[in-house]
């Protein structure tokens, strides 16, 4: 089973817009909240009220500074499993607990089979697998597999918890394998890219790059002709009043 399916019917995944993400952590906690009671429940927390609080989370948001000086910027960067097409995290798994679903390409860990050998986490270049110290098994983004087909939820809510919560709309969910899907179009339009293609894992999730700025470094704004009062001397106000008067009596 840890052999990868030849193809998957769909390539479900996330498209994350780095141009919009403000780093609010909503996707992080909503993911935790849904999933700690969901498919791979629980997502344990160690020392939750003590000196070293840490636990399993399926999604984390980093902040980076990119570039320097006038062209520098701050980029918030959410990171979760990319549901790669050819991920070694699955093939290294000795138990078959890790697998990629042929139906939709979702990469899952079966929490009832995992022995917690952690090898899959070594094999993931993206740091997307998190071991649950307390539960003794590996956890990872499930793409909210227990939401997206869940008939107990309204149809519009059958999307991952993180996408549902994201206040800025920086997260999109859909079939990236279908060129006609909204997400695929977005990726095409905005130059969506893969993380570390050199690893050869073929991530399904895509990132939309921050857009060009429109500040002094890139502005195309052309000033209107220099205004009359700019270099005016003492009677700047007088000439201004005359203008105002004239304008009003049009």
């Amino acid at each position: 089973m840890t052999s990868l399916p030849q193809t998957t019917k769909k390539k479900l995944g996330l498209v994350i817009d780095l141009d919009i993400c403000v780093g609010c952590q909503a996707c992080v906690t909503s993911c935790k909240e849904w999933n700690t009671g969901g498919y791979s429940a629980p997502l344990s927390d160690i020392d939750p009220y003590g000196a070293d609080p840490h636990g399993s989370w399926l999604n984390r948001v980093h902040g980076y500074e990119v570039g320097e000086g006038a062209t520098g910027r701050t980029v918030h960067f959410p990171r979760s499993c990319l549901h790669c097409e050819t991920p070694a995290c699955v093939t290294v798994c000795p138990t078959g607990a890790s697998y990629k679903r042929a139906e939709d390409g979702i990469v899952l860990v079966n929490p009832d089979m995992c022995i917690g050998c952690k090898l899959c986490s070594w094999a993931c270049p993206y740091g997307a697998r998190e071991y649950d110290e307390n539960h003794g098994v590996m956890k990872k983004c499930t793409l909210c597999v227990d939401r997206i087909y869940n008939t107990h939820l309204a149809a519009e809510d059958r999307i991952p918890a993180c996408v549902r919560a994201c206040p800025t709309g920086a997260r999109h969910f859909g079939d990236i394998g279908d060129p006609g899907s909204a997400v695929s179009k977005l990726v095409a339009e905005r130059g969506g890219y893969d993380l570390m293609p050199e690893m050869g894992y073929k991530p399904v999730n895509k990132y939309l790059p921050p857009r060009d700025r429109r500040d002094s470094t890139t502005s195309t704004f052309q000033p209107a002709v220099e205004a009359p009062d700019h270099n005016g001397g003492g009677d700047r106000a007088t000439s201004f009043f005359a203008w105002a008067d004239k304008m009003l009596s049009r």
Partner: peptide, 16 residues
Amino acid sequence: ARLDSEPAVELSRNPA
């Protein structure tokens, strides 16, 4: 939704 060798996933558990 499963292939032969894939485990069954409870896709539609009532969360509430």
